[in-house]
Design a protein around this nucleic acid. Structure first.
Lengths: 156, 156
DNA sequence: CACAACTAAATTGCGCACAACTAAAATGTC
DNA sequence: GACATTTTAGTTGTGCGCAATTTAGTTGTG
């Protein structure tokens, strides 16, 4: 762990500048393209993430959604309320465990999936103008880094 | 551009789910490690980005900072005011062009650079547990995608 | 010179992200 | 069974990020 490569002091800060900047910028660039593509569906980017999870796994308690997206109730509670206000989901207190709130797709919310499938991924892929293989590679690298960062965050 | 690879319909949505999720998650994972590392310096992650730009280029008008970080005044104005309140920078109306506000490092702000150089990049590198080469590769790919996305956003 | 067009920064409003906290329900332990 | 502990959502407060608008200053055109 101490065997860091011999990078000159000054370059470290410049490298750091580039790393955090490019990730930050890429994230926002994706965000802004998604924003445009998702406008027709009346969804924000994070709302789309929640819908993707629900489309894939069906009705889920807030807790489970949070685990899959690594988001806490502070983010999810108001977000899901907005989805509910828009008629895409309903929230129901679980009968077995009154603490838990199950998020269910409405018919409208379920139907939105076809529209999204048609419109979103293709346009995103084309906009990023990278190959599917490159995206898969990017995904692997990001996944590895994320895991490492999460572990590091727990021990810092 | 129309020569998209033959990916089955269903997989598209799953791929999309992974792409946007992994970038979103990676961005937040970096954010949270930076948050921890930067706490000692009393800086948020975006504030650190602004400081990096100032340390590298010296005093700059808000406009120029925004160009380098792709951030607009709606984000930068309050952020820079907070940096000013913390004593890291001063804001001065330009004499030549009264519309422009130049952001200048205070002595304290300039001095913070040494502390950052010492603490930040090394810990981030170690936490992400990837090689400098991999980071450079990641950076190139992200840069390429960001450029493409920005162009796409302009024509969508 | 007058007036339109443009530019830089700031402001407002909304949504996300997270830390810190609260409320209510479930679980564990004596 | 009583009570501390843990768990699930929700709330509050702060800071980004962006769209849309506002304010003030500059530039261009007749």
């Amino acid at each position: 762990m101490t065997a860091l490569p011999a990078v000159p002091e000054e370059d470290l800060l410049r490298l750091d500048r580039h790393i955090c900047f490019s990730l930050h910028a890429a994230s926002r660039a994706f965000d802004s393209v998604y924003r445009i593509v998702l406008k027709d569906l009346g969804l924000t980017y994070p709302q789309y993430l929640v819908m993707l999870v629900l489309w894939e796994h069906g009705d889920l308690p807030v807790k489970k959604i949070g685990e899959r997206l690594r988001l806490d109730s502070g983010t999810l509670s108001p977000l899901i309320k907005r989805l509910e206000a828009a008629g895409r989901v309903r929230r129901e207190r679980s009968a077995e465990d009154e603490r838990s709130v199950t998020v269910r797709l409405t018919e409208e919310g379920a139907a939105l999936r076809e529209q999204a499938l048609e419109a979103v991924p293709r346009r995103i892929l084309r906009s990023s103008s990278v190959t599917v293989e490159e995206l898969a590679q990017l995904q692997r690298l990001l996944g590895r880094i994320t895991t490492a960062l999460d572990e590091a965050a727990a021990t810092l």
